[in-house]
Nucleic acid binder design. Sequence first.
DNA 1: CAGATTTTGATTTACGTATCTCAGAATCTG
DNA 2: CAGATTCTGAGATACGTAAATCAAAATCTG
Lengths: 347, 347
Amino acid sequence: MRPTVHDIAAEAGVSLATVDRVLNARVGVRAETRERVQAAVTRLGYVRDVAAANLAKSRSYAIRFILPDGDNPFMHALKAHVLQVGDPATRLGGLERLAVSLDPVPSLDAVALAAALDRAGEQRPAGIAVVAVDAPEVEAAIGRLTARGIPVATLVSDLPASGRRHFAGIDNIAAGRTAGGLMRRFLSGRSGPVAVIAGSLTLRDHRERLSGFADVLAQGAQALNLLPVLEGGDDPVRVEALAGRLIAEVPDLAGIYSLGAGDQGLIRALSAAPERRPQAVLLHELSPHTRQALEAGLVDAVLAQDPGHIARSAVRVLRAFADGTSFDPAQERIRIDIFLKDNLPPG
Amino acid sequence: MRPTVHDIAAEAGVSLATVDRVLNARVGVRAETRERVQAAVTRLGYVRDVAAANLAKSRSYAIRFILPDGDNPFMHALKAHVLQVGDPATRLGGLERLAVSLDPVPSLDAVALAAALDRAGEQRPAGIAVVAVDAPEVEAAIGRLTARGIPVATLVSDLPASGRRHFAGIDNIAAGRTAGGLMRRFLSGRSGPVAVIAGSLTLRDHRERLSGFADVLAQGAQALNLLPVLEGGDDPVRVEALAGRLIAEVPDLAGIYSLGAGDQGLIRALSAAPERRPQAVLLHELSPHTRQALEAGLVDAVLAQDPGHIARSAVRVLRAFADGTSFDPAQERIRIDIFLKDNLPPG
DNA sequence: CAGATTTTGATTTACGTATCTCAGAATCTG
DNA sequence: CAGATTCTGAGATACGTAAATCAAAATCTG
């Protein structure tokens, strides 16, 4: 059997109260006594039963997610996973005393986001997870939370200078480089111009993906020629117009890399003129539309990050910060997934 | 506050004892009373506090992992992750009352494996996780465990006919198809023979990968010519000899797919004659050697399954079976990871 | 309707830890 | 050495659930 606090008390020859004072770092214990207890702890290999401790404390972890509104399918999926993690009927929700709440904010509105962060902080939650927008107001709001001791994790889009404690998302420069590596190999041998469609270059993650991608395309023996970046505002309608013109006007187009959202528009443009489809088409994030396009051969590969993993990871990490415990960085690393038609997860 | 059993009792107008009888499906409750209690449960949205329940039951989950000995780097990594999951100082180990033990068995020895399974079953563990060998003895042993009500999960290599409750590993046919898709695209335009190096075709996962790969290569406009499969017994020395001869004797070799282990030998052979390296080299599993080869450009892509995920997933799933609760299939799905030089996880 | 049987209530103890109180012991201060 | 101060001990209570006992009530059987 695992040793309990009672065993520690007996082993150290002190009372339960003293063991408690040492274990919970309370004042009023002589240094010598403290050491006796700690020696007993290591000798017996005691580890606190976290479940019992939380029961006794009737502690619960309030975690607030602040996510953008709107019709972005990835954000929708993320939202669904957050709700699922917080569901007390699930393992995480039930066993770990979570109280997850979800605050929607208008997409890409820095002022509203900063206000939502301040409001969320008022409730003194155990942690806050937020999809950051790259703006000084947001940076300052996160800084205020951190200063008040509330751990903040950024999701998907990072803001390293804000003082956030953790980022749950992919390395977007590496994602861009990965897209570049795939593009080079998928076009091995041949040359021709390559187009990039972004949402907006004011978005940090889009800028980063672009820089990684451009980097790799410029390297190596035969350099691929990158066309000027098109910005579609993550809007399917605008993306469709841009992609349609692109395909019509650049006859020898070798590849397209869509690094933002609005891919439904790109897919429509591609299926409207299948005979002019470039040799390699890459885009980001799995959704019903992108899955279908991959299966139909309209798209060659999809880069993705797992929204379920992001939601679970953010909760685990914020909990660990709240408790002052550690976590496994390898488990919390969000992978850059590459999906081809053949390794698509079911569903 | 979340409702407790006391609230249920008050709401239903019955005693605590009766609530307990209903919740834990004990006998001696009239159908009508049972329904009153269940109505109160749904009305108040009661969910059992699993942590408190486990504390009261002083339940702990003994989970045995049966893993092959030997110098396979993937199995080493898997072993390390299993030990980490079982460590009571970690979240999973601490919060979830796990008692994980690890039984090593000689690699590829069906008789020893069957004996180990029987021995593990004697202790009546909450669950058993095993890397299956495709043999009737093993199938029978797993069947006996299942018959005794002990849930078994196969890891990495499956044995569907055995009656195992769960498989934690990748779909190897899909992995082979994925490799085929990458090979086709990496060789786009050009033709030439493609070689496959397997460990042994008596291994189910190797056979499956081969069949998926061959399938994809045969499809499509320009068929790639598959050379007869080489079997290297997962042994670096033998693989090196095979690969060396292959590179020397097939001048127009377009690609190599190594679907088993022993890749250190392949990498040595490739670096010995870098000028004759085929255009596309694919292999399985990340290890210090394969990482380095990817970074050096000797290998183009690595297909992988995350051993940490496999270990954690097996524990979660076996726990759920032991409790009769459900789990999230999407979370437990082991992905076919594709790593290029650019999306390699650090470390 | 008496007696047997089934169902229900009331109460207690336990799980491992946290937190509090109050008294007593040990140590320090002047 | 008295008095103040700091440490320590013993005990109680709580967290939410499980599991048991025993008595009382309700229902069924013949």
